[in-house]
Amino acid sequence: MSNLFTYTIRIADSALILGQRMAEWCSNGPTLEEDIALSNISLDLFGQANGFYEYAAQINGEKSADELAFTRNEREFFNYQLVEQTNGNFGKTIVRNFLYDSFIFLFYTELANSSDERISALAAKSIKEVKYHLRHSKNWLIRLGDGTDESNKKVQDALEELWQYTGELFEMDTIDTELMKKNIAIDVSKLRPKWNEMIDSTLKTAKLNRPEDGYMASGGKKGIHTECLGFLLAEMQFLQRAYPNAKW
């Protein structure tokens, strides 16, 4: 696998897996408007994932975009562990998405300057949508944090639970550094100060406490995952596994 291929599917995988999590909300949203919102975000994420998978399939002709999504095993997925975490209650979903949305907004903003034209174009397109995904998760976090004692407790608990998955967002490995030399990849470790600012100001408005940095999980980019991913893939890939090449 070339570095460019791996770099591209890493981005696609995080979008796809979070998209699948959001799709689980379809018909289970707390209100009709929210149900539509969560499913719409899911569609945007699938669209973004598809753009990157199509490019990956072009770089390495072995698998099509659909095959990349539906016929790889858990250890072959390179998404961040944060995005595979279960939806839990609505508050937990909002916390997970806010932590990710604020990161990925900064990520795509930088990536839009990539020397790889296709990656740059896909990033520039994705920013437009991530902007309103971030507004959505941020506004809900503020309403829930600064809401009732119960809503505040639920989102604070979710923050404590999910904080350990934020460390790997800023990790660099040799694939990143190699591609950085060609100005294709970006230095994610440099996004941290801006991310900290976004998180701190929103948590303050939301009357939430920033968790202490403790143990940080790691490994998503190398294919190491929490047990949540296997269950998600089992559901998402069932049809193509049971009926290979089935079409609508």
Binding site: Q48, K125, E129
Partner: peptide, 8 residues
Amino acid sequence: TPTYSGCP
């Protein structure tokens, strides 16, 4: 060109 990434 696609409109919104998720537009079917």
